[in-house]
Amino acid sequence: MKFSACAAVGGNWAGRKLKMDKSEFQVEENPYSNIRHMIGVVSGKGGVGKSLVTASLANLMALQGYRVGIMDADITGPSIPRMYGIHGPAVGDDNGLYPLEADNGIKIISTNLLLPNEEDPVIWRGPVIANMVKQFYTDVIWGELDYLLVDMPPGTGDVPLTVFQSLPLDGIIIVTSPQDLVRMIVSKAVHMAEKMDVPVLGVVENYSYMICPHCGEKISVFGESHLEEAAEAEKLPVLGRLPINPEYAQKADAGDFAGVANDGLDRAAEVLRAMNENKS
């Protein structure tokens, strides 16, 4: 089977009026995959650390014995493979494409694992990018997974819309940062989820603070948090507040993120565990 981005463009999108009825856009899971839960990690803006949150939560669930995968849906700015130190090319056969595995057993698919040179830019138009994401679900052989985490690009454009409409999300986690515009960021993501009938599991704040290595004082580098106000306004639970941790950044740059256990996401992990138990 040839896994071609160009061949992925299907259907005539020109002139079609986009509807909120997802049944028109739903795609079928690869017959050799069995994914129990699919969780999107989203944000209304870039630069808030969605990939770090995605990878940290994936690590926590893997440490607890769950079978976990990461779909790197940030097609033009993929970072997950680099964080885990894995390199392509991913290979496939007549049944589909196989994801690569990190040192801790997490299965990963990303455009970086398909390109001849992982540093090549992805210069594709929206329909091609959107259909590549669908192929990450229909053509990738994920096998048995308890959780597939989808690391999405920021905003409400083609890729988030495709994921919300075409893939069977069980819920999303919104990632934000401690700045004045946090309420707008959260609201955008919440309203998109509501229009697409996807549950919002809660909010995670990244870059909440840092601990001075000399005196132990907690420093609010980006100002005081507005997370509680935003979460209360949207009636959402707060699933974690993550500090700035230079060690995590160093491990990500070194491709050694599989060894990170970020306990700031314990509550988010509890929500995912409860979801799995309720389905048993």
Rank of each mutant, 00 (worst) to 15 (best):
M83Y: 11
S4A: 11
W124P: 12
I80H: 01
S110K: 00
G92V: 04
L227R: 05
R125L: 12
G10A: 14
P168V: 06
D103S: 10
V41G: 02
W124L: 11
Q165A: 11
G255P: 01
T138E: 10
L115E: 12
A268P: 05
W142E: 02
V41N: 03
D158F: 05
A230R: 10
P99V: 10
D266T: 12
I39S: 06
D256Y: 04
G126V: 03
S23W: 08
L145R: 10
L115W: 13
Y32P: 00
E224A: 12
N276H: 15
P127F: 09
V221H: 12
G69T: 08
N262H: 07
S4M: 07
M1W: 11
S43M: 04
G92E: 01
G126F: 09
E28M: 10
A130S: 15
K22R: 15
D197G: 05
P31W: 06
R67P: 11
D74F: 00
V190Q: 02
D256C: 01
V41L: 13
S56A: 03
L52W: 02
V175D: 06
G77H: 04
E224I: 02
P89C: 13
G216Q: 08
V128I: 14
V140G: 00
D151E: 02
G216P: 10
V271E: 03
R183W: 03
L242G: 12
M210P: 11
V140L: 05
P160F: 01
L60H: 01
I172M: 08
F257H: 06
A189P: 07
F222R: 13
S110G: 01
V159C: 00
G44D: 06
H214D: 15
C215N: 13
L272S: 07
L169V: 09
A231R: 09
K22N: 14
A268I: 09
P116T: 10
D146L: 14
L169Y: 03
A233Q: 14
F164Y: 13
M192Y: 04
K22G: 01
M210A: 15
I108N: 00
V53S: 07
K2T: 12
